[in-house]
């Protein structure tokens, strides 16, 4: 519990400074003077992934996204990332590494008359896929009567598929710089992807032992301004 409080304090400290920095970057009066709407690809990075370094050091990963308004309030999106895990669990050691991708579309339900305002509140969906390998070594099959059986190693390459329902908020802090978060409800399509044992983590999805899950992202975005109209 002491480590919990320490980690909480560290994350709070970091986010306080991020918030202060972004507030200082705001230039009062500039945003909103331009009445034209800016179009271009918006590249994002999931900051919440880095929080895992403090809360679950055995898992390391990164996640990036690209979306773009191609039609009024409609944003197709692509998300890519990777994840690795090394963990010792009871009688065996477990390792996983792989990449994932999601494709989908968001719809902005925050309709504003002033089209130069780029804040958005979106709902959307994603299809996700992950290709990864996982490995367990020194697996012990316990038998109190006959004596334990040791399985030295097991390794398999898997493909996970899932769908997501996404709700998100993005706010333009300064021109073309956004911050936002999303909440995701995930459904794993193929939970029995490994006949011998279920993967601990499916990259991009979450716990492989759960057929349903809730996910969260907290990201910073930059929109490349290609067109104003």
């Amino acid at each position: 519990m002491q480590n919990w409080n320490k980690m909480k304090n560290i994350s709070g400290y970091i986010f306080k400074w991020i918030a202060l920095l972004l507030l200082l970057l705001q230039v009062p009066g500039l945003s909103g003077q331009d009445t034209l709407r800016t179009f271009g690809p918006r590249i994002g990075m999931n900051l919440a992934r880095f929080a895992y370094i403090f809360f679950d050091p055995s898992e390391i990963g990164a996640e990036f996204s690209v979306d773009m308004e191609v039609y009024r309030n409609l944003y197709p999106a692509v998300e890519l990332g990777y994840s690795t895990l090394n963990e010792s669990e009871g009688d065996f050691d477990y390792a996983m590494s792989g990449a994932f991708g999601r494709v989908g579309v968001d719809y902005n339900v925050l309709h504003q008359e002033d089209r130069s305002i780029h804040h958005s509140l979106t709902v959307g969906a994603r299809y996700g896929m992950s290709v990864f390998s996982h490995r367990a070594v020194n697996v012990t099959i316990p038998s109190e009567y006959w004596g334990d059986f040791l399985l030295e190693s097991y390794e398999n390459t898997l493909t996970g598929h899932w769908i997501e329902l996404v709700g998100a908020i993005k706010t333009e802090l300064v021109p073309n710089l956004f911050m936002g978060w999303s909440l995701r409800y995930k459904i794993l399509i193929n939970p029995d992807m490994d006949p011998l044992f279920t993967p601990l983590i499916v990259p991009g999805y979450g716990r492989g032992t759960q057929e349903r899950g809730i996910g969260f992202s907290y990201s910073v975005f930059y929109k490349i301004p290609l067109l104003k109209q």
Partner: peptide, 12 residues
């Protein structure tokens, strides 16, 4: 554990 910090978009 949820840690919330808020940023206020005032501007426009």
């Amino acid at each position: 554990h949820l840690h919330l910090s808020s940023l206020l978009a005032i501007g426009s």
